[in-house]
Design a protein around this nucleic acid. Sequence first.
DNA 1: GTGCAAAGTTTCAATGGGTGAAAATCATGA
DNA 2: TCATGATTTTCACCCATTGAAACTTTGCAC
Lengths: 203, 203
Amino acid sequence: MVGMRERKKQRTRRALIEAALRLFADKGYEETTLAEIAAEADVSTRTFFSYFASKEDVVFHDSGVRLERLLGLVAARKPDEPLPRLLLGIVQESMAQATEDDEFPLRDAPLRLALIMNVPALQARALHVLFDSQLRLTRALHDAYADRLDVVDAAAAVGALTGAAKLAVMASLERGDSMEQAMKAAARAAEVAMRGLDRLGDA
Amino acid sequence: MVGMRERKKQRTRRALIEAALRLFADKGYEETTLAEIAAEADVSTRTFFSYFASKEDVVFHDSGVRLERLLGLVAARKPDEPLPRLLLGIVQESMAQATEDDEFPLRDAPLRLALIMNVPALQARALHVLFDSQLRLTRALHDAYADRLDVVDAAAAVGALTGAAKLAVMASLERGDSMEQAMKAAARAAEVAMRGLDRLGDA
DNA sequence: GTGCAAAGTTTCAATGGGTGAAAATCATGA
DNA sequence: TCATGATTTTCACCCATTGAAACTTTGCAC
């Protein structure tokens, strides 16, 4: 059932994303108007909104897919897999997504990261996306280990892990580290969170 | 140096905050227009923006003060205080702020919480405020323990702790818990994060 | 093919947050 | 009282976002 309708829609969607990213890179996010994006993609301004709910959404167009992949990991766990091992798997998949290219090109990653770091609206949005992911991951985890893990503990686990990783990445990037170093920081942070904060500082 | 100028400014600021919260409570956040807030506080619409940078800011007018209090804790630590103990202190102070009233009345707390939970724009903003707090706390911690704790570990600690607590609170509230139960959840989450995720699930 | 309904697009008009700049007010201190 | 600098108001915009109506394209039945 892949008629012309469907193909055309995908083409337009792609055109919008690419036009937008190109313009953002050239002139900056706030300096780019929706009218310009639409013009560049050769559709009317109104049509933009039948593809994306907002200007910000263009930047996060693939976050849904990424989350699904993580949820898939939880769903596909072996029935006797211990929770800590699964958590580690989730961390690894997340880090792979950040470097490996998959359906969307790694090409855009630096641009997107720079946008998120520098545009307040996008930063807020990124946090929101992360938050939604955390909530859904929490629910998935709770469902998967319903017998052994109540919601609060599941939330604590997800929150601690992602919280530590996120903040470590930001702190790393903030001091001028490369993306590779930031990834290392994330891995280290995950380790700290897994091991516990108890022995931090006096070692 | 408390002339009429200063006093008037404070009065106007207060009037704006109260007008806004009243209207938000009555008609909802999105349904309330800036023009209405300004009218209710008896100033021009334009003047609103010389007190707050945006509509959202009214809701978060005191977040700065709260953070300062936490940073104060870090600054006031005893020179030999072990990091884990300080972290615990920070958690306790945060929880106290949520229930104790101080310079801003507890009266508004439920309204604000409800607003944040239900208005996407405010939710995003709340996450952003929290994020900034995390970054500053990280820096403070790193400075305080410069010899023993690099930035990444400091970030991991702050991220894990606040991440766990935040998500636990949300998960708790989401399943219909009372504020008191949500606080308990936060405490439990902090404990889990301190102890480490390693032994979660198999116990 | 022809014709029609559904899907998708454009155009148009409006709302509301947010900003810049000039004109009007007003507290303060000489 | 008067000059001055700080605030406030007015006014004129920009731009994201939304609703509705008119129009075009695609898919499908005959």
